[in-house]
């Protein structure tokens, strides 16, 4: 999973590319580590390139969400692919995350 982070103003713009599963969950956790702390807590994630996520991926997003909210920010996920959106729907995560 390729993770690109651009910081503009008081928002992190994140672009994701690829699959998120057991094999690279560790790397993904390291990649988003910079987002888990600091003043900037507003995060926008472009999910157009994310083709799959496992339950551990969901967990990582959940951790990110909780961290952002604790610092007064929020996580917005955009352009999610249909099959990934379905997972979010089934698990009810669609209600927790802001998905547009």
């Amino acid at each position: 999973m390729d993770v690109t982070i651009k910081t503009e103003g008081n928002k992190h713009f994140v672009t994701l590319n690829g699959r998120l599963d057991t094999t690279n969950i560790q790397q993904f956790t390291e990649d988003i580590a910079p987002l888990m702390s600091g003043e900037i807590a507003n995060i926008e994630i472009d999910c157009s390139g994310m083709s799959y996520t496992s339950s551990q991926g969901l967990r990582s997003f959940l951790t990110l969400q909780k961290s952002a909210e604790s610092r007064g920010g929020s996580v917005v996920m955009t352009k999610m692919q249909p099959n990934v959106k379905q997972v979010f729907d089934i698990t009810g995560f669609s209600n927790i995350f802001k998905i547009i």
Binding site: T91, G92, F93
Partner: peptide, 9 residues
């Protein structure tokens, strides 16, 4: 109905 997964909220 999907509700939400257990243990999150």
């Amino acid at each position: 109905k999907n509700n939400l997964v257990v243990g999150v909220m």
